[in-house]
Structure formats: structure tokens, C-alpha cells
Design a protein around this nucleic acid. Structure first.
Length: 214
DNA sequence: CGCCAGGGCCATA
DNA sequence: TATGGCCATGGC
């Protein structure tokens, strides 16, 4: 196995992990909140912030005093910035009456630039929201995805757009496939491919790994 | 103690 | 467009 295409890496991971049907959240709005809170932050800290909400609804976040909101999300770090980001993305959601099907009736081509214009919503956060909250077929690139490209090497450029275009070009345009691929990259990275503590022997891709400790 | 974690904004050149 | 400083907590 050459591991030189996005598709055969997918199949190896899929044989190992199966269909994960992923994003650890109970509602689409919770996906949006989690996507912001996890920016450069360990997921365990995001969980601590999430459970601090007495009511994790867009209406609550809108009505909540921003200083109080910052205090709620304190464990997730960067809490002053992220409180503003949550307000901003919630205001965006209000344009669709906080209604998921109303967003889903719009096109990806309209929604992605719209989200990118929201303060605090960059490419990864926008794509995570579009894919995992709303089911649009847009491939998510994160630090783990870039690391994977370096280790097996798939790709020369490490830019977000180049990596995203590579995966979208090599794979069928399918939201469920993109969902599971990114999920498997994250799960595999956490279990077997931590930057500080690689457990390469357990990794389903270990035999093809070119560079460790990236 | 220092490094790291599912980024993004902004100023600067 | 491409870096660098900044934002901040908690686990290890």
C-alpha cells in the first residue's frame, strides 16, 4: 500500500474505525459553540466550558451578559475573545431564525463566505460548522490533517486551501464521507498520533508513517 | 517547570 | 501574502 492518495488512507482508517457519525455534541447549535471553543484548545477544556451552561441555546447566549458568558466559558481559554465570537456567530444564526432547516435551504457557496465574514470564524471553524452542524459537503482541515499530510506525505503545501482542495479533489463530494474522514483523523491523532506522545505501534497507518514527532 | 491543545485577529513589511 | 505577537486554561 502506497498511502499516496487520500482515498486509500481513508479506506485503511475506515477498516479500523468504521463509521463514527461524529461531532461530540447534542445539537447543531452545540456544534457551533464547540467549534469556536476548541480553537487552539484541548477538547477536555471545551467540555468543562460546555457543562457550565445552564441552557446551551442561542437565545440564552444572546441574552447573556458578555462578562457572564466569558465566565461560563473560562475553562476553554481565550474566554474574552471567544465570548465575543459566540455572540457574533449566534447573531449570524439569528438571520435564519435559529432554525437549522432554514440554513440548510441555502447554498454552501453563499453560507461559507458569510460565515467567514463573522468575527472569530476562520476557515476551519466555518467548515466545521457547515459540515457537522448543517451537513454541507465541505472538507475540514485542522492541525491534525496537516500533520497527516506531512507524515504520509500527500501534499507539499500546508496551506488550508491547498489541503482542502486536495482532499475534495480525490474524494467523492459526500458530506457523510467528509464527516467520517475528519472524525477518523481526529480520533486517530488523539489515540495514536499525539505530537508529544506518538503511539505509532498502535496506529493503523504506522507502517507507512514517514516522519514522526512533527 | 515547560510544552501542548481539533485557531483567528491584527499589525507590520 | 506571509510572518509574529497576542489571547488563556488545564493536563501531563
Amino acid at each position: 500500500m502506497a498511502y499516496n492518495t487520500a482515498l486509500n488512507i481513508y479506506e485503511t482508517l475506515h477498516t479500523y474505525y468504521g463509521n463514527l457519525d461524529w461531532w461530540p455534541a447534542k445539537t447543531p447549535y452545540e456544534v457551533m459553540v464547540g467549534a469556536v471553543l476548541t480553537q487552539n484548545t484541548a477538547w477536555s477544556n471545551v467540555e468543562k466550558a460546555i457543562i457550565n451552561f445552564t441552557d446551551l441555546s442561542p437565545q440564552f447566549v444572546q441574552d447573556c451578559d458578555i462578562a457572564k458568558l466569558a465566565e461560563i466559558i473560562r475553562p476553554a481559554g481565550f474566554f474574552n475573545q471567544k465570548a465575543g465570537y459566540l455572540k457574533a456567530v449566534t447573531a449570524w444564526f439569528e438571520n435564519y431564525n435559529f432554525d437549522v432547516p432554514t440554513v440548510q435551504r441555502e447554498s454552501l457557496e453563499k453560507l461559507r463566505p458569510e460565515l467567514l465574514s463573522v468575527k472569530g470564524i476562520g476557515k476551519e471553524t466555518a467548515d466545521s460548522i457547515l459540515l457537522y452542524a448543517f451537513g454541507f459537503p465541505t472538507f475540514v482541515v485542522d492541525a491534525y490533517t496537516v500533520r497527516l499530510c506531512e507524515r504520509y506525505p500527500l501534499e507539499i503545501s500546508k496551506s488550508y486551501d491547498t489541503v482542502k482542495a486536495h482532499f475534495e479533489d480525490k474524494l467523492p463530494r459526500d458530506a457523510d464521507l467528509y464527516n467520517n474522514y475528519h472524525a477518523m483523523i481526529v480520533i486517530n491523532a488523539k489515540e495514536h498520533c499525539k505530537k508529544s506522545k506518538p503511539l505509532c505501534g498502535e496506529c493503523p497507518l504506522a507502517d507507512a508513517c514517514k516522519k514522526q514527532n512533527i
